[in-house]
Design a protein around this nucleic acid. Structure first.
Length: 427
RNA sequence: GGAGACUUCGCCUAGUCUGGUCUAUGGCGCCGCACUGCUAAUGCGGUUGGGGUCUUAAAGCCCCUCCCGGGUUCGAAUCCCGGAGUCUCCGCCA
């Protein structure tokens, strides 16, 4: 949610920033709408407040007269009450319209974020080199040869878009998750294991609803009386966990992380770049998150990107970092940096982590605040989130980058103890 | 799943039966000030959150907020209805 006061006082700044990801004429039209509704809202509030004040005074006078023993006249407030009720209904209507338009507006892209879509993304860093591989096998072939992932039985169980890790493959996936968890703890993040079924207030707060309402799995009211949905990312749970809270300023930046499976409906259809475990309806991800003071946000973003990269580096994978253009970063975010790992079979880089700065956009939706030190005012915190990391992408990258001519795969050094082997070999 | 008790401004708590000086009590914590020749004790003051209005800003004023949503009433923390949550007991269950 954007700051209404900023729209009121500095509409040009808002319009210019939004035009990076939306059509400028459309932005203008929406802002007109918003300002109109905002004026209407404030007019109604003034009117209602005034009427209420009158009615309260009447009731007080009545009580006083009664105490004094004077037989009071019944104040003719029946009409007043009706009038307030009517105005309130009108206000509800205006506010709900305003909330709808406001909640659909994306965040303002940061100053250094370029306008445009995917094509305007910029690679800003590269780590390592593509490993020289003579005859590249893709990860789907490798995991079949090595017996790591059973796609057929996964589909048998969950339908298309699901898989099952098996044997040493399951151990590799689990080892990755555990290794990531430990690295995040080392980096000072507190470990959370949240519920996977969330109320839709959490989805709204994170900015996933209303826009992505249809991209997540909703439980019907029979099985989940309050219409819970399966979380599409732990980000939703972490943010929702602190909803409506005033965080202790001394504890900021608050650093937490969570491991959860992520459940997404995703666009149907299979893409040659996205075979195997690259895109599915359920995948594992470890998510880091920070709640910060506004002035801490820049440093936090740097720190989180560096941390996520250290994880990819720790595994020895070749990757690049991209600064996403306005149209390609998620709507709730001001700035997003993707860490993309090299996939030899496609000759492309695939996202394993997306680290973003949300400004106060999510905090405003979720009402997460801190108290200004010294002052008694509350302000919205800044939120930052990032994958650290998505194993469903790491897994194939490890297979492909570390494959050997004989079809075996070298296990990243940091995982060897956990797997009890330094090499996965064809069965 | 059943029965009962409960939910008050950070925490604890008074108030709910018997609707109106509740514009919510007291304690703890926290902040400020005073005093004391030490980071103690004491005293005084402040301390829910949100919104509106005014203003360069602060202050002020007004409205809402006693778990949430409705209702009754001139008037609701208090009465009525619905919902959520917590605890206790019983039942069921991987």
């Amino acid at each position: 949610m954007l700051d209404m006061e900023l729209i009121r006082k500095d509409r040009d700044t808002v319009a210019t920033a939004l035009a990076k990801r939306l059509d400028a004429a459309e932005v203008d039209r929406v802002l007109d709408d918003i300002q109109q509704l905002d004026r209407e809202r404030r007019r109604l509030i003034s009117e209602i407040d005034g009427e209420r004040q009158r009615r309260k005074a009447e009731a007080r006078a009545y009580a006083q007269a009664k105490r004094a023993g004077v037989e009071p006249q019944v104040p003719p407030s029946e009409a007043g009450r009706k009038q307030v009720a009517e105005l309130e209904a009108e206000l509800d209507e205006v506010q709900s319209r305003l909330r709808t338009v406001m909640s659909e507006l994306p965040n303002l892209p940061a100053d250094d974020v370029l306008p445009g879509g995917k094509e305007a993304n910029r690679v800003v860093k590269t780590f390592g080199e593509p490993p020289p591989i003579e005859k590249v096998r893709d990860h789907v072939e490798l995991s079949r040869m090595l017996g790591l992932v059973d796609h057929e039985r996964g589909v048998k169980l969950g339908g298309s878009g699901f898989w099952m890790y098996t044997g040493i493959g399951a151990r590799l996936e689990w080892a990755l998750i555990n290794w990531l968890i430990e690295r995040n703890i080392d980096a000072g993040y507190e470990f959370l294991l949240p519920p996977h079924l969330l109320l839709d207030t959490a989805g709204f707060a994170a900015g996933q609803f209303p826009k992505f309402h249809d991209d997540v799995y909703h439980l019907d009211r029979q099985s989940a009386p309050r219409g819970q949905f399966l979380l599409p990312t732990a980000e939703t749970a972490i943010l929702g966990a602190y909803q409506d809270e005033i965080l202790d300023t001394a504890k900021l930046p608050l650093k937490v992380f969570a491991y959860t499976p992520c459940y997404r409906r995703e666009a149907a259809g299979s893409h040659s770049d996205e075979r195997g475990t690259v895109r599915g309806h359920q995948f594992n991800k470890v998510e880091i998150f920070q709640f910060t003071l506004p002035e801490q946000a820049d440093a936090a973003l740097e720190q989180m990107v560096a941390h996520a990269e250290s994880l990819v580096e720790g595994l020895g994978l070749h990757y690049q970092r991209s600064l996403l253009a306005a149209g390609d970063s998620s709507a709730a975010m001001r700035k997003t940096l993707d860490i993309e790992v090299w996939m030899p079979s496609t000759g492309k880089y695939k996202e394993v982590s997306s680290v973003s700065w949300g400004g106060d956009y999510q905090a405003r939706r979720a009402a997460i605040r801190y108290r200004e030190p010294g002052g008694k005012q509350t302000r919205f915190v800044h939120t930052l989130n990032g994958s650290a990391l998505a194993t469903s992408r790491l897994f194939p990258a490890i297979l492909e980058q570390f494959q050997q001519p004989d079809g075996s795969v070298l296990v990243p050094e940091v995982l060897r103890d956990r797997l009890g082997t330094d090499r996965l070999t064809p069965r």
